[in-house]
Design a protein around this nucleic acid. Structure first.
Lengths: 190, 190
DNA sequence: AAAAGATTGTGATCTACATCACGTAACCCA
DNA sequence: TGGGTTACGTGATGTAGATCACAATCTTTT
């Protein structure tokens, strides 16, 4: 699907904009294409934008001790991603974002987002709900982390996003679950 | 500090309301007082409200297998709490909220919040930012969970909220850290 | 098509933390 | 003021998952 239509249908679920308003909104987004493996945000970068995924799959991750990787989010079409802590607090990125597959994204700068939120009540409404859903999902994941063992978390993840099983290498799924790739591999037999 | 002043100063940090607008906003809140140990939300309840803490300390927690407790949030003055998943998706509460100390709260119904957000752009702005901060904090905690051992998480928590050490029994701090009370106790000696 | 790198599986061993068990001290509240 | 509940410490033992090591594919690049 075309980027503009995808975004429009996505927004329409929570906010009512006229076609004219949406066209204006859309004009602030910059379309970007990336190849598999390309980096969008690196640790230490100044972060100015957030990204709406049109096609492909990104990962937002943290590297500890230059060795261990922890994946905060897989970002699929219609998902938003960035290092929101860095973006809102104007601090250097602690999170990396790169492309698991070739990907197309729409890039929106933080200043444009704030401008658009101030100009259109409905746009502010949309972003409140988007963040709200992210917050609820994040709380659920935290609870699952405290409450469930690796096997249960793995099954939950696959039930929620079956396409990940074939799209994403297993060691990345392990990094999302916060477990070693060896342990994840052994789960298949138990 | 008086409940109304506390809320007004809290809101003023992110939204500009005239005194008249704030008075109208405030008129939708219901002040409630609770004693130490009293329950505000029980698992299975229909959840209609969110709560702004004026004084005291609440905990939002999840009980697994009728045995293990996991604390999602300690809620102190100027913090907001509820079972947001239940509140937004109109599902029965999975989270409990009760009082660690005597507490005063201001209660806002979800329908009033949505009404106020629709009526005043600045109020929608405020709630977007509040949720945004919650989302960022939740992501940070998730990262710390994956990345750090118990001792580091304990030190982080005490650095962020030193008052918790004396205010809250250790087994509740253990339940927040997702660790057994015995292990937490042993950390003091190591 | 060959070489190099990435991905996955699996055994052996190690470790952080859980669980069980028991003892002591502090705090309610009738 | 005394008896019961709650809080907290600490030893002994169990276990999920980490780490190390190596081998077998599968993918990408030249």
């Amino acid at each position: 699907m075309e980027a503009k239509t995808l975004l429009q249908e996505h927004i329409a679920k929570t906010a009512s904009l006229t076609q004219e308003e949406f066209d204006y909104f859309f004009s602030h987004f910059k379309p970007l294409s990336f190849k598999k493996g390309q980096t969008i945000i690196s640790e230490g970068d100044k972060v100015d934008c957030e990204y709406f995924v049109v096609s492909g799959c990104l990962k937002a991750f943290f590297i500890n001790d230059e060795i261990k990787m922890y994946i905060l989010q897989f970002a699929m079409p219609t998902w938003w991603t960035s290092d929101y802590n860095a973006l809102y607090n104007q601090t250097p990125a602690q999170i990396n974002v790169d492309c698991i597959t070739d990907a197309e994204v729409l890039c929106l700068s933080s200043s444009d987002r704030e401008k658009l939120c101030a100009e259109f009540h409905q746009i502010e409404h949309f972003f409140r709900w988007r963040t709200n859903k992210g917050y609820i999902a994040s709380q659920k994941r935290l609870l699952s982390f405290m409450n469930n063992n690796v096997k249960t978390r793995y099954e939950e993840l696959l039930a929620l996003y079956p396409q990940l099983y074939n799209l994403v290498p297993k060691h990345l799924i392990a990094a999302y679950l916060g477990v070693s790739r060896e342990t994840l591999s052994r789960l298949h037999n138990s």
